[in-house]
Nucleic acid binder design. Structure first.
Length: 316
DNA sequence: ATCCAATCGATCGCAA
DNA sequence: TTGCGATCGATTGGAT
């Protein structure tokens, strides 16, 4: 199947397999489901394009955005008059295999905001705001990188009634798995941190009121998932890493070092002693942190640090 | 000055 | 072959 189009790039797109076939594969690597797409250039050569996301929207054709690695982003939005991908009904549910990688967190019981927990006196406050309106302009095309930063960093309207961070992570993971899960781009440009850091903070999201400076990561996730898909589409193509590095951009919040309590350190060392020859791998540590109710990143750090000490001959 | 929490980023092995 | 998660050394800098 090939489709002629009148896009600004004047290319022809050749999907090698159908979308249904791609879905049937149910691969846990959604970003590779389109890896057979290529563009045919005027000079007769072809170039493989890497898909970077899918944009499912109700009652609309599926949008797929391609990127030619490290060069230019091609967006189907730019060539609406001739959709490059045939109309495909998109099921909202990601393939089940994807959920295995990002298990849903159980709902946390009532809001942990202690100072605002006077129930019965007031009607229930609606959970935060419905969608990010301001400072986003009506037309997403008007969003500038500077505005995008502000949109993503927009504080909660009501800090005393914070969202459940587990719901934030769930929503964010649903979005990323349904949209190609380009982890590196999401982390670097949308959230402004390394992808390893994002993964670590998605393991055991702490209650909003207990978050320190890393609140920024969850806030950006929160704001991102609540944007209109048009605004997301627009912001996605921006180099926000560059924008954040600019002079005048809001400074990255400084880390607040919180030493692990000694008893927690001792528990980790015990885990390590129980399997002296074996590597305590990250999936195990993650599960352990979840079960114990500890925040994962410091757990991982301490374990990592102790392992290097042990290699240097430090006894445990 | 030292410890080590927080973060980054290069590299590896695996699965598709 | 490719991209991902996992691994782990390196770096930064907060806390004492």
């Amino acid at each position: 199947m090939s489709i002629d189009d009148a896009s600004p790039f004047s290319v022809k797109w050749t999907p090698a397999i159908s979308y249904e076939e791609m879905l049937a594969r149910s691969t846990p690597r959604p970003d590779t489901r389109f890896d057979h797409y290529q563009q045919h250039l005027h000079d007769g050569t072809t170039e493989k394009l890497e898909p970077i996301r899918m944009m499912p929207e109700e009652d609309k054709p599926l949008k797929v955005v391609f990127a030619k690695k490290e060069t230019q982003i091609y967006s189907i939005r730019k060539c609406r008059r001739a959709p490059l991908i045939t109309f495909i009904p998109y099921s909202d549910a990601p393939p089940p295999q994807l959920l295995v990688q990002y298990p849903q967190f159980p709902e946390r019981s009532p809001s942990p905001a202690p100072e605002a927990s006077v129930s019965g006196l007031h009607p229930p406050i609606p959970p935060d705001l419905p969608a990010v309106r301001s400072p986003a302009p009506a037309d997403p095309n008007d969003i500038t990188p500077e505005m995008a930063i502000k949109i993503l960093d927009r504080p909660l309207r009501d800090e005393s009634n914070p969202p459940d961070t587990r719901e934030i992570v769930n929503a964010f993971n649903r979005w990323r798995m349904a949209n190609g899960n380009n982890a590196a781009h999401i982390a670097t440009h949308i959230l402004g941190v390394n992808k390893t850091t994002v993964r670590d903070y998605c393991v055991t999201p702490q209650p909003w009121n207990e978050l320190k400076y890393e609140k920024m990561i969850y806030l950006r996730m929160h704001n991102w998932t609540r944007l209109s898909s048009e605004a997301r589409e627009r912001i996605w193509e921006m180099d926000l890493a560059k924008e954040r590095a600019k002079n005048g951009s809001p400074e990255k919040p400084k880390a607040i070092i919180t030493p692990l309590p000694d008893d927690v350190k001792e528990m980790i060392l015990n885990e390590m002693r129980q399997a002296p020859d074996q590597v305590l791998n990250e999936p195990y540590l993650r599960q352990w942190a979840i079960e114990k109710g500890f925040n994962y990143p410091p757990i991982k750090n301490f374990h990592h640090y102790m392992r290097s000490r042990i290699r240097e001959g430090f006894p445990i």
